[in-house]
Design a protein around this nucleic acid. Structure first.
Lengths: 331, 331
DNA sequence: CCGCAAAATGAAAGCGCTTACATTACTCGA
DNA sequence: TCGAGTAATGTAAGCGCTTTCATTTTGCGG
C-alpha cells in the first residue's frame, strides 16, 4: 500500500526547523528540549504523520523492547493465566511481546530462541529445557533469559517459579490429612509434572507405606484425555478415593465423567486440580486446586527487567514465588 | 551479560575471507554463492558464533517478519484456538508473532497498533474496531491490516471471517427446527455478539412471532459469569427451553449449574454454545456448538501474506470462512 | 552591560545489515 | 587459445535512528 515512503525523523526535523537530534531527544526525553521547540515538534509530527521506526531506533541504541515468551502449547494450556499476566504487565512497561509455541519439541524451542536472539530481544521467557549450545548463544548475547514455572538447579540466568517437588509433597500431606487412603496420580509427563509426581510419591510412601496408582497424560494435551483417563481409573481393581490431576480442566473433566457414571464427588471419589484457574471456583463441586501466583511472577519479571535496564545487579537469581493449596468442595 | 560485542556479518566475512555482501547473500539465497565459498562461510559462522541481527536486516531491506495479533482477552478467550492456529502457521512461515491484549479498550487497541506500526510489522491482525485516525496510519504504512472473525462492510484492507448475523439466523432456524419454543439468548455485548443476537432475534421473530428473553454477559469475561446468568434465568417467570450462549465455557458453566439444581439437559433445558472448542465434545452431555474454521482462517492469512510478499495483487479482500452448527447432545 | 555556567541545539559518526552496480572469475564453443 | 556470456564476488551507498562531542543560546549575578 505504501505509495510513497514514510516520513522520517529528519522530515519532522525539517518541518520543525530543528536538527534531527533534537527531534530524537524530544521523543526519548521530552524535558530536555525547550518548551517552544517541543511545541513546534509536536506540530511537525502531526503535520507529517510521523511514526517512529523502532527498528532503526533499536539498532542505533542497541536495545530493544521485544520480549519473547515461549510455551509448549496454547489451547489448552496450563500457562495461559501466567501468559496473560505477563503480556499485560510487560505491555504496560512499554515492551512488545512475542509468543512462540514450542509444541513440546526441543528443536522448535531452540529455533524460537534463536529467532528471538536474532531480533536482539530484551528478554526471553522460557518454560522448557534449553540445550547447552543454545545456552551459550544466550549467554553471549545481552538478552536476559528467564526460566519460569520452575526452580532449576542450574539456571541459565534468572528463574522465577516454584518447586514442583514441594507441590507434590504438600499434596500428599494434604491428601493424607483429609483421610484419603487410595490416591491416584495423573502424571503430566513433562519435566515439571514428573517432579510433582515424585514429590507426591516419596512423601506418600514414606508417610503411609502405601502405594499410589497412576495414569499418564499425553502431550500435547488432547481432547478426550479426561474420558480416557477416567476409563482407565474405572478399570482399576480398587477404585481410588482421590485423584490428583494435572491442569484444572482435567480435574473438571474427571468430575464430569464421575458424575456422569453416577459417582458422587467427593464422597465416592475426590478430585484435586492444579493451576487454580477460573474454572476451579466455578465448577460444581468447586475444585480443590493448587494456586500459582501469576501476578507475582509477572511483577517479578517486570521488575527484574526494569532493574537490568537501569544497570543494577540482580541479586536473587532464583525467585521462588510459592504456591498454595486451595481447599474447596471436590476434595 | 554481553561482555563484549556480538559478532557481525563482517566478522564472519573476515573469517571466511569474503566480502560481507557475499555472507549476506549466503543467508538470503544460499544457492547464489559458490559451494566452496558457502562451505567456508558455514565454518566461519560456527567459529564466530554469529547470529544475524534482524533489526539491521529489516531496516536495510525495509521488510520485517513481525506479525502482530491483537485480541481483547486471553484467558478465557473466544479466540484462543484461532490464535494458536495463527501462531503455529505464521511461525512456520518464518514470521515472529507478537500478541497484544486490548482488554476491550479502544485506546489500548490503538496503542498496540501504533506499536506494531513502529516496528514496521508485516501485518497486523485485529479483532476490534479501529478508528479513522488509526486507519489512516495503517493505510499510510506498508503493513497489511487483517481483520478477523468478522466481515466488515468497510474493511481497512483485508478481512477473513464469517457473518455473525448469519450465525444468529442459522441458530434461530436450528432451534426452531428442533421444536424449542422459548429461547433465551445470552448476549456478548461486543460488536460481534450484538450481530449474532440481532440475527437470531430477527429470524426468530419473523419466523414465530414469539419473543426471546435475554441476558447480558459482561466484558471482560469474568469468573462467576455462568452462575450469575443461570441465576438470572432461574428468576425468569417462565423457564426457557433452550439457552444460546456466548463461548462454550459459558455453555458448559450453564449445564453444570442446571444439573446442580436438578435440571436435566437437554430435557428440561437445552444449551447451545459457540466456538466448538475442545470442551464442547468432552462435556457430558456433549455441547451443540457453532464451529469456526480456525485452520482455514490461519491458512488463508498465511497465504495472503505470502502473496503480498510476492507482490501479487489480492483479489478477494473479504474472505468468508463460514461456520457450521455441530449438533450434539445438549440441544 | 559583561561574563560565565547551564541549557539547548547541531554536526556527524556510526548501529549491522541489504542491494544496485561494478568488477573479476569462470565456462565453453569456435 | 581467445573471447563472449554467465556466474561469483566486491564496493559502497544507504536504511532511520541514537549519541557523543562541539557549538550556540540563554539566564543571571555583579
Amino acid at each position: 500500500m505504501a505509495s510513497t515512503t514514510l516520513p522520517t525523523l529528519s522530515d519532522v526535523a525539517k518541518a520543525a526547523s530543528v536538527s534531527s537530534a533534537t527531534v530524537s531527544r524530544y521523543f526519548s526525553n521530552p524535558d530536555s528540549v525547550a518548551t517552544k521547540t517541543a511545541e513546534r515538534i509536536r506540530q511537525a509530527v502531526l503535520e507529517t504523520g510521523y511514526t517512529p521506526n523502532r527498528l532503526a531506533g533499536s539498532l542505533a541504541s542497541n536495545k530493544s523492547q521485544l520480549v519473547s515468551i515461549l510455551i509448549p502449547q496454547l489451547a489448552p494450556s496450563l500457562f495461559i493465566e501466567t501468559i496473560e499476566a505477563l503480556v499485560s504487565k510487560l505491555s504496560s512497561a512499554g515492551c512488545i511481546v512475542t509468543v512462540g509455541v514450542t509444541e513440546f519439541d526441543a528443536a522448535h524451542n531452540e529455533a524460537l530462541i534463536m529467532a528471538a536472539l536474532a531480533y536482539r530481544a530484551k528478554a526471553i521467557i522460557v518454560t522448557g529445557e534449553v540445550s547447552d549450545e543454545v545456552r551459550k548463544f544466550i549467554r553471549q548475547s545481552s538478552t536476559t533469559a528467564i526460566e519460569i514455572w520452575d526452580l532449576p538447579e542450574d539456571p541459565i540466568d534468572i528463574a522465577v517459579g516454584f518447586s514442583h517437588w514441594e507441590i507434590g509433597r504438600s499434596l500428599a500431606q494434604f491428601v493424607r490429612s483429609r483421610g484419603y487412603t487410595r490416591p491416584h496420580f495423573v502424571t503430566n509427563p513433562g519435566p515439571r509434572g514428573i517432579k510433582r509426581r515424585n514429590g507426591f510419591l516419596e512423601e506418600w510412601q514414606t508417610g503411609t507405606g502405601c502405594d499410589v496408582t497412576e495414569s499418564l497424560m499425553q502431550l500435547p494435551f488432547q481432547p478426550g484425555a479426561a474420558r480416557r483417563i477416567f476409563a482407565e481409573i474405572q478399570r482399576l481393581e480398587e477404585r481410588p478415593d482421590v485423584v490428583l490431576c494435572g491442569p484444572d480442566w482435567m480435574a473438571q473433566g474427571l468430575i464430569v465423567e464421575a458424575m456422569h457414571f453416577g459417582l458422587r464427588v467427593p464422597e465416592d471419589i475426590a478430585v484435586i486440580g492444579f493451576g487454580n484457574s477460573a474454572v476451579a471456583s466455578e465448577m460444581r463441586p468447586t475444585i480443590t486446586s493448587v494456586d500459582i501466583d501469576d501476578q507475582r511472577i509477572a511483577e517479578t519479571i517486570a521488575e527484574i527487567l526494569l532493574n537490568r535496564d537501569r544497570g543494577e545487579e540482580i541479586r536473587e537469581k532464583v525467585v521462588n514465588t510459592g504456591f498454595k493449596i486451595i481447599a474447596r468442595e471436590s476434595a
